[in-house]
């Protein structure tokens, strides 16, 4: 177990001894860590107290593709992520679970710096992608995003042909060689288990595909650029069960070749598809370990309560 650095150090305008306000979650009550007894852990978090994460020892054995180090994020004055430190293992599927508003998506969108597009976001701490600091001022954000693929909640195919959708990231790099493009298009569509369905209509608009096909197209688009890590933000929440099943099968197939970080609300999905699961609550990492352990014998009662559906 590892103690986290209090974010107070970054907020010098507040004295650590000042009286806490109930609505100011960003401020811990005191420098002393409060009692972390399981009973009032969630209450303590809601209170704004600092609570250490429970990270299973196996997590330190996996070689990481992405290291998140004491990461904090504020939307304006509201802190959304509190000092998260975790390693995302290489070529494995890692699921982020937790109730709505716990910062899963925010954390995911921080990985490829999509939060940069919002102008009231402030961050602290760092992430490293294969050792390269993501939030280093010298990091080219466009170059960074090319090293990752992302799939969103709602399928967002671009208003162009299926073919152009898949090779989009190559097009913007100026790739014109038809042979290369054709090859990557087929490989990505096969990788996304969509090739057989669309191979005869690659030039048709992607907007004519069904929702499930559109989402798999988005996955094909995300893996076309050979990303180092694949970010999936609730990729099945807008899909029907059959399409969901196909996307889950696909995630199974991607395991081993790609490092996948998936946000999901669906406990069954997390248990079916992922190797590791992280449970988050109110912007904090509560427990992180192998999926089988999180779902069968979690260390914390809160985790058990959440994954069995007793709260959240």
């Amino acid at each position: 177990m590892k103690m986290l650095v209090s974010p107070v150090a970054n907020r010098d305008s507040h004295s650590p001894l000042s009286t806490p306000k109930a609505d100011d979650l960003s401020m811990p009550t005191s420098a002393h860590a409060p009692a972390t007894s399981p009973v009032d852990r969630l209450a303590a978090i809601a209170n704004g107290d600092h609570v250490p994460s429970e990270v299973h020892p196996q997590m330190h054995l996996e070689p990481p593709v992405l290291e998140i180090k004491n990461f904090n994020l504020w939307y304006g004055s509201k802190q959304a992520i509190h000092g998260i430190t975790m390693n995302i293992p290489n070529n494995k599927v890692t699921a982020l679970v937790g109730p709505s508003g716990c910062g899963k998506s925010t954390l995911l969108r921080s990985v490829n710096r999509l939060n940069d597009l919002l102008n009231n976001v402030r961050i602290d701490g760092d992430m490293r992608l294969n050792g390269d600091s993501i939030y280093n001022s010298r990091m080219d954000v466009i170059d960074l995003r090319k090293r990752m693929g992302m799939v969103f909640q709602k399928p967002n195919p671009f208003p162009m042909s299926i073919y152009e959708n898949v090779v989009y990231s190559l097009r913007i790099d100026g790739e014109r060689n038809r042979g290369v493009l054709d090859q990557i298009c087929e490989k990505s569509l096969r990788g996304a288990a969509l090739w057989d369905e669309v191979k005869d209509r690659l030039t048709e608009t992607a907007l004519g595909l069904s929702g499930g096909q559109q989402q798999r197209l988005c996955i094909a688009r995300a893996i076309a650029a050979e990303p180092e890590v694949l970010l999936l933000d609730e990729p099945c929440s807008a899909l029907d069960p059959i399409a969901t099943g196909k996307v889950e099968d696909l995630i199974q197939e991607l395991r081993g070749t790609y490092s996948v970080l998936i946000v999901t609300h669906n406990m069954q999905q997390a248990s079916r598809t992922s190797d590791f699961t992280a449970f988050m609550y109110l912007g904090r990492l509560i427990e992180y370990g192998p999926t089988t352990e999180i779902f069968t014998k979690p260390i914390l009662k809160e985790t058990e309560a959440y994954v069995t559906g007793r709260f959240g």
Partner: peptide, 9 residues
């Protein structure tokens, strides 16, 4: 966002 995530400027 999808386009930005693909690394487009």
């Amino acid at each position: 966002e999808g386009s930005y995530a693909c690394g487009a400027g």
